[in-house]
C-alpha cells in the first residue's frame, strides 16, 4: 500500500462515516456539522485523486456556502437544538429506508466492483492544475459554463421571488 493509497483510505473512511452520521444524528446541528466533515474529507479524496482545483471548489462552495445556507435554514425554521425524536420518521419507515439505502449501495458497489476489477490508477502530476482545468473550461466547455451562470441567476431570482413576504 502506497502512502497516497493510505491517505485516500483514511479520507474515504472519514467521509463515509461522517455521511452516515449526518443522516442518522438526532441533533439537527450535529447533522449539519457532520455534513461539513463528510464534504471536507471528500475534498481530501479529490486531492489524492489528483483533482486539486475541484477539491478547492468543493471546500469553497460546499463547506463555505452550502453548509452555511443549511445552518441558516435550520435556525430560521426554529429547529430544536437539543436531541429530538421528531426529526426521523417512524420505525417502520426507517427500516424501509435502511433497506432501500442498503439496496442502492449494494447495487452500485456490485456493478462498480465488477466494472473496475482490480485495476489501479495513478493520477498524473499536474492533471488537475489550474491552467489545464481553466483551459479545458474556457476553451471546450465555455457554452455549458455560460448556461450554468444563467441557471444560477435563475435560481437566485427564483429564491428571491419565493421568499418575498407577500403580506406587505
Amino acid at each position: 500500500m502506497s502512502g497516497v493509497e493510505i491517505l485516500f483510505a483514511g479520507f474515504a473512511l472519514l467521509a463515509a462515516a461522517a455521511g452516515l452520521l449526518s443522516v442518522t444524528s438526532r441533533h439537527v446541528v450535529h447533522a449539519a456539522l457532520w455534513l461539513v466533515v463528510a464534504l471536507g474529507s471528500l475534498a481530501g479524496v479529490y486531492l489524492t485523486l489528483g483533482a486539486e482545483i475541484v477539491a478547492i471548489v468543493q471546500l469553497l462552495v460546499y463547506v463555505g456556502a452550502v453548509v452555511v445556507l443549511v445552518l441558516f435554514a435550520l435556525m430560521l425554521t426554529r429547529a430544536p437544538i437539543e436531541a429530538s425524536a421528531t426529526l426521523d420518521a417512524g420505525p417502520g419507515q426507517r427500516a424501509g429506508a435502511a433497506l432501500a439505502g442498503l439496496a442502492v449501495a449494494a447495487l452500485l458497489a456490485g456493478t462498480l466492483l465488477v466494472a473496475v476489477g482490480d485495476r489501479t490508477v495513478s493520477p498524473a502530476a499536474g492533471q488537475g492544475s489550474a491552467d489545464r482545468l481553466g483551459l479545458a473550461l474556457f476553451a471546450g466547455w465555455v457554452l455549458p459554463f455560460e448556461l450554468l451562470s444563467v441557471l444560477l441567476l435563475a435560481s437566485l431570482i427564483g429564491a428571491l421571488a419565493l421568499s418575498r413576504d407577500r403580506r406587505r
Partner: peptide, 28 residues
Amino acid sequence: MIHLIGPAVLAAALAGAGVYGLLARRNA
C-alpha cells in the same frame, strides 16, 4: 497508485446514506 475499488465503495456508501436520509428524515 490507488485501487479503483476504493472510490467505487465510497460512492456506493455515500449513495446508500443519501437514499436513507431522503427517505427516513421528516425535517425538510
